[in-house]
């Protein structure tokens, strides 16, 4: 059974149709990546899945008692709100310091515990958000462009970490990403979104699909080939955490 599924979603924001007839599901242990151009409704789909968007039509179904971890695309903390990283991890459920430290280490942010959230760099912030999402041992991780602001080794390490976390927690992962070449090799399934689901399936199948090529051109296919080339030779980048 799917952990989380959406049927026939229709969403309008600010009088503008954002999603039409979108079906989506995620099964235990799967890594699904959502790709699509800017403004194609990727973030809106994720926000619909967590129940933050009013649906015009359709429904979202969660497995009973489902534990979710969510990393939003953008989050700005108002500087009038004092908040250490440690305190942030205890929202909304208070966690033991040992648990918080483990999550920070898993997210590659162990040195940041005592820092103020408003003073973190973009990449550090992103790691802390991931740490928070890992705290409740989620069954599904929803990550909206999780590698934005990470340096390139950081981003490569991030995807490896996601794989490790999946292996360790057995959680499913839904990711939004623009890094097509990386994504293509890291996912079990790719959903190509442009207001509606253009095409979906195994990364190789999607990369060949006419709808996908219409959106991203054949250039990405080149990038995919390039990545495969890298992939066979460069398993030795430093883990920069």
């Amino acid at each position: 059974m799917s952990l989380l599924s959406a049927r026939d979603l229709q969403v309008t924001l600010g009088g503008h149709g954002v999603l039409q007839g979108v079906d989506f599901h995620i099964d235990p242990g799967e890594i699904v990546t959502i790709v699509g151009p800017n403004g194609s409704g990727k973030s809106t789909l994720l926000r619909s899945l967590i129940g933050a968007v009013r649906l015009d039509r359709g429904s979202v179904t969660r497995a009973p008692g489902l534990r979710l971890g969510y990393v939003p695309q953008a989050l700005r903390i108002d500087p009038t709100l004092p908040m250490t990283v440690r305190r942030f991890l205890s929202l909304p459920a208070r966690v033991e310091t040992a648990t918080a430290r483990t999550a920070l280490r898993e997210a590659g942010a162990e040195a940041l515990e005592g820092r103020q959230m408003a003073g973190l760099s973009g990449g550090q912030f992103q790691r802390v958000l991931l740490a928070r999402a890992l705290l409740n041992e989620p069954q599904v991780l929803l990550l909206d462009e999780p590698t934005q602001g990470l340096d390139q080794p950081g981003s490569a390490a991030f995807y490896r970490r996601i794989e490790e976390i999946r292996a360790h927690l057995g959680c499913a992962v839904v990711m939004v990403s623009h890094e097509l070449h990386v994504v293509m090799s890291a996912s079990d399934r790719v959903v190509c979104l442009n207001g509606h689901v253009c095409c979906e399936g195994h990364p190789e199948t999607v990369a060949q699909a006419a709808e996908y090529r219409a959106l991203f051109g054949t250039g990405t296919h080149g990038a995919l080939a390039l990545y495969r080339h890298e992939h066979t030779h460069s398993h030795d980048h430093a883990d920069a955490s």
């Binding site: 967590i50 979710l68 971890g69 939003p72 903390i77 709100l81 908040m83 929202l91 909304p92 459920a93």
Partner: peptide, 19 residues
């Protein structure tokens, strides 16, 4: 308190935690 803080921080994070 905890729920108010979470919702203040980000409505989306609140939703994801069932608040």
């Amino acid at each position: 308190w905890q729920r108010l803080l979470t919702a203040t921080l980000s409505p989306d994070l609140a939703h994801a935690s069932g608040i």
